[in-house]
Simulated scan of single mutants.
Amino acid sequence: MIIVLKQEAKTEDVTRIEKTIEEKGLQVHVSKGENQTIMGLIGDTTKVDPESIEVDPAVEKVMHVSEPYKLANRAFHPEDSVIDVGGVKIGGGHLAVIAGPCSVESKEQVIEIAKAAKAAGANLLRGGAFKPRTSPYAFQGMGSEGLDILVAAKEATGLPIVSELMDAEYLDEFIEKVDLIQIGARNMQNFDLLKKVGKATKKPILLKRGLSATFQEWIMSAEYIMASGNPNVILCERG
């Protein structure tokens, strides 16, 4: 359920309505646009009588949201999302080009590629320090050493870093060193990892669509991160 306020609604109106809703045990997500304020209700909306809200002089209308995802729903925030990744804006008409090696293999390799990518117009550097592989015998990445190499490439070029997190064990290190944390296709429905990422940081998350995942499953995975406290999710379609 969403509550659309009138253009002339004041801050005290938002606070009053928000308090009324929260007293019923629901959470309220407030989105303030240029011309209108929208309040999204999260929880058991059967406890709320829409007609009792619509009579409020500050309310324009009350609408039901049929989709199971709420925070990731465009109805909850009609304004374009613009997410800042180390000074590079993504969304709202801003074009971001992410480039770099599939896997980090050496400092020389990554810095050379980072410089070439920047010269070609890229504004973010992608590199895999930890690599999920189909074969257990294939190269699995350099791990923490690979992250340090990416940091060195950032220092050399100024490009913010994008890298894939596979296990919450390394989450603190990623928060410290990586600008955009990638959740790969294979982990799209690793709900424990999604919740931990949402709770631990507000750092932007790049969420790739899982193998054979439906659109709704993908958006619900984004909802896990957002519902845990991190609204900065970027969706990445998988080829």
Rank of each mutant, 00 (worst) to 15 (best):
H94Q: 01
L95Y: 02
L95K: 14
I98E: 04
A99M: 09
A99E: 08
S106A: 07
E108D: 12
E112T: 14
A114K: 01
K115F: 05
K115Q: 13
K118R: 15
L125I: 13
G128C: 05
A129E: 05
K131S: 09
R133H: 13
P136D: 12
P136Y: 13
Q140W: 14
G141R: 09
M142G: 09
M142H: 14
E145A: 14
E145H: 14
E145F: 06
G146R: 00
D148A: 14
K154P: 07
E155F: 14
E155H: 08
E155R: 13
G158T: 04
P160V: 02
I161T: 05
V162N: 01
E164Y: 13
D167A: 08
D172H: 03
D172E: 15
E173M: 06
F174K: 11
I175K: 12
D179K: 01
D179G: 03
G184W: 01
N187Q: 05
Q189I: 06
N190F: 08
L194G: 01
K195I: 03
K196D: 13
V197D: 03
G198A: 06
K199I: 04
K202T: 02
K203D: 02
L207G: 00
R209L: 06
R209S: 03
S212I: 10
S212P: 00
S221N: 07
S221R: 05
E223Y: 12
M226Q: 11
S228K: 04
G229S: 08
V233Q: 02
